[in-house]
Design a protein around this nucleic acid. Sequence first.
DNA 1: ATTGGCAATTTTGTATACGATATTGACTTT
DNA 2: AAAGTCAATATCGTATACAAAATTGCCAAT
Lengths: 232, 232
Amino acid sequence: MERAGGNDPSAGGEEPELLSDQIRNVLTDEIASGALPPGMGLDEQELANRFGASRTPVREALRQLAVTGLVEIRPRRGVIVTQTTPERIMEMFEMSAEIEAMCVRIATYRITPIERGRLIEMHDASEALVQRSDIDGYDKFNREFHEVIYGATHNAFMAEQALTIRNRLKAFRRTQLRHGSRLARSREEHEAILNAIAQGEGDEASRRMRAHMLNAASAIGRYIATQTRKDV
Amino acid sequence: MERAGGNDPSAGGEEPELLSDQIRNVLTDEIASGALPPGMGLDEQELANRFGASRTPVREALRQLAVTGLVEIRPRRGVIVTQTTPERIMEMFEMSAEIEAMCVRIATYRITPIERGRLIEMHDASEALVQRSDIDGYDKFNREFHEVIYGATHNAFMAEQALTIRNRLKAFRRTQLRHGSRLARSREEHEAILNAIAQGEGDEASRRMRAHMLNAASAIGRYIATQTRKDV
DNA sequence: ATTGGCAATTTTGTATACGATATTGACTTT
DNA sequence: AAAGTCAATATCGTATACAAAATTGCCAAT
């Protein structure tokens, strides 16, 4: 999606940060983090006051979030944080798993030695994180690991889409790797994937990636099943 | 993307059509159809005059289109229709092919007899369209055919995403099936896919779908390669 | 003739204003 | 007492107003 869902203040061009963009980014984070829970109504004037701005940039931000699906706009009835049912969350996780599987399959056939080297290097370094049970550190590594794979598809559009979907799931992945055991398992799965890549077995890498993603998702799924029951 | 890129005036709820939504839909179509060519600047006041509205709803529409990637906003420097390079178009086609392949694979394992019956029925009816060389008719059938497959994944989120990507490629698929021969070939490929589905061979259906999509894309690719060279 | 800088103009980004629709609460009626 | 109706209020959608930044055109200087 271009620089869309974009928290992308990089891109050398040195573009000015518009108020509406800042507001959009803050709201994105707050929704993803759960600070603004699903179903909560978002009053334009109220948000405007909070940000010290007028309704105009707030409105623009909300409209953009609606395209992403983060909020829902009912004409003349206000904006609410999208209520995501457990079923839909599971659908999103499945989609995410399939996308990752797709990416790794293509990446297997196109990855360069340099990229593969970087993956292996990152993977090696991750062992220390597991032993330290450094959850936040592993989380960061994990994200980068998957992003390198996106890049190795050498299809920028695909990489963007994959990242967009992954980001969209961030809100629900929050509670994910909170067990050290999952950390170690995750790393083993990464290794299995890397082996398949090294042997040029795209389909096998794809299957292992799908399993990897669904393993991660199932833990969350059990949590969500109990957690979101309240507002369904 | 929810009801995002959404020309979706259905959804029983009977929501009022906002000016900003109407403008967004019109602009979407005009960009997709090429009436607003890539690189063209979009002046807010000018558009407002054209639609007999003020700048406010026009701005909201443009901001939403930017999220989709149809237009590009350079802060304080105006809005232009996104310049899509031939490379990127090919990337989008590849992504589309992979998504379709992914969907049909999952659909193979989950499709209901009723859904399969509908696919076969549509496929049978399409023979007449081929013989008549009814390109527009076949185009419509083709879209529905693929949408039924999306639905058969029984993953609404996946179906939405697939449709969003497909719609986004509409602009570049315009010149596609302009040869009767491609029409017949397309139908044969559909049949091969249906056979794989019938036998429960998800991976095979997936491969055939990928080939089907890439066949369609390659014809366009050759066209685009010559056509878009002007503005690169 | 070309390039550099400056002023005028245009256009964007944000703020404010206004009309219309939905929501809320009280009151009446059964 | 419960339900329906109507008025008051609040909030949304759009229009207009204003300030800041970028583009454009002109003039001068090399």
